[in-house]
Amino acid sequence: MEQRGRTGGRDRDDEGRARNARPRDGLGRPLPYGTPGVARQPEGVVRSPERTVAEAQALLDAGKPFHAHEVFEDAWKSRPDGERGLWRGLAQLAVGLTHAARGNPTGGARLLRRGADAVEEWATVSGRTAPFGMDATGLVRWGRDLAAEVTRDAAKVDAVERAPRLRG
């Protein structure tokens, strides 16, 4: 959506809804107005599961887990009820990596565990460990392992080096 600027001290979109128009860096952190930032993901895009996975993987590989989280969030909001737990869990894994890369080990570990639990629960209930070609079991293991690492080391991680492989 087009960003119309500030109204009453708040950024608003063309429909008058509050939307933060500040530019963002590659990890989704707000930058000062007027600073060049990374292009934001468009909101509300309905994608096929395969396209969602491909776009999210490209963003993860580029060190943009916050942006991948937004792609997963679109799927979470637009896919059938029976899939939403999977997409929500994947969004939580991506934002957990975002926090870990920003140097927030507590928040990162919490979201990584929550995401791993959600993906595992969805796979258990649905009986699918390879939904849309993804490796649910591997993603659960990746999330838990990274959560343990950031808890133990309390250090920033490199988002590119630690990006998960969505497909085995």
Rank of each mutant, 00 (worst) to 15 (best):
A75P: 05
A39Q: 12
V125P: 03
G26I: 05
P80Y: 03
G8N: 04
V71C: 07
L166A: 01
Y33R: 11
A155H: 08
L86D: 08
R141P: 02
L59A: 05
N20R: 06
L60H: 09
E149M: 14
T129L: 10
T137A: 15
V95R: 02
V157Q: 03
R84L: 10
E73R: 07
A118W: 02
K156D: 08
G115N: 11
A163I: 13
F66Y: 13
L31S: 08
R152D: 11
R79P: 00
R47Q: 01
D135V: 03
V119A: 06
A118F: 04
H67S: 12
H67Q: 15
G16F: 06
E43T: 05
E43K: 04
R40P: 14
T98F: 11
P36G: 06
G9R: 12
F132C: 09
A123D: 00
G16K: 01
E70I: 10
R29N: 09
L27P: 10
A101T: 01
T35R: 00
H99N: 10
R79Q: 15
D117Q: 12
H69W: 14
V160S: 03
T7Q: 15
E2V: 15
L31R: 06
K156T: 13
R22N: 12
T52F: 00
N104T: 00
R167W: 01
R84C: 08
T137H: 11
R47T: 03
S126E: 05
L111S: 05
S48W: 09
G107T: 10
T106D: 13
Q41D: 08
H67N: 13
N104L: 04
R144M: 00
Q3E: 14
V46K: 01
Q57G: 07
Y33H: 07
A118Y: 04
R19C: 07
R40Q: 15
T106C: 02
G28R: 03
R22W: 12
G5K: 07
G28W: 01
Q92S: 07
A94R: 03
R10G: 02
R22C: 10
